[in-house]
Design a protein around this nucleic acid. Structure first.
Lengths: 119, 119
DNA sequence: CTCGTTGCTCTACATCGTAGAGAAAACCCC
DNA sequence: GGGGTTTTCTCTACGATGTAGAGCAACGAG
């Protein structure tokens, strides 16, 4: 399986957190909240579309009953393949960070206790 | 600070693990060992060069006293900025994975205990 | 029916990832 | 010392991904 990029991972996780409320605009807000960085509109929808094309997300037109202004929202949901990709990304991350020499931990400003590398 | 990509993170961490033996070819082998994927030569040196240009790695010509065949090796070392970037990437990762609803953990095949999100 | 509101589509461009051909530099051996 | 072998790196091209915002589509309010 191809490894997803960091952006893709972040979008998938945002959709996870939002659950049934994973609309495009909310995903964008969520990503901005987590990273503290500003994301342009295209910086979110373009990767989202790619995730849909890859089958890691599925999408549907917004609810027709919503009593609100504006264009209908598009809802996203993480697929089984999406969850598998997230799991793979997480496993890769742990493998990457394992076995760092103690000196490296010091240089990172992290202590050796409670490093969160177990599973 | 700009967020480094997953590839950059992996290369920096490989250099960390190798310490004083962080030569290009060894970094490549290390990355292949961790990921289980094959990396072409350019797939390693091109990102390595970019990391040097960004100041996250520094490099020097190989040891002159080495008694071995072949072209001299180029050694890489992670700079302070490199460590800072790694730390930032790690923090971002933890922020991304925090606050996932329990249902998501189940779908990921991960239990809630020992998830390694503490620090 | 016109207006403000909201959220999305679309396109262009910058940056990053991927691939391998082939050169460079060292040692070996005769 | 010079051709062969080994090892590692440089270079270039191209595909994939990230980034940015202009502008349109759909809706409710008045």
């Amino acid at each position: 399986m191809e490894t997803i990029t960091r952006t893709e991972e972040m979008l998938l996780l945002a959709a996870c957190r939002l659950g049934d409320n994973a609309y495009g605009a909310d995903i964008r807000a969520e990503v901005e909240a987590v990273t503290g960085r500003r994301y342009s509109v295209g910086g979110v929808y373009v990767p989202l579309d790619r995730l849909v094309r890859k089958g890691l997300l599925e999408t549907e037109e917004g609810a027709p009953t919503a009593k609100r202004r504006g264009r209908p929202r598009r809802r996203y949901r993480v697929t089984s393949a999406g969850f598998a990709a997230l799991r793979a990304a997480r496993d890769l991350h742990e493998a990457m960070w394992a076995r760092l020499p103690e000196l490296a931990w010091k240089r990172l400003g992290l202590s050796l206790s409670g490093l969160g590398l177990s599973r």
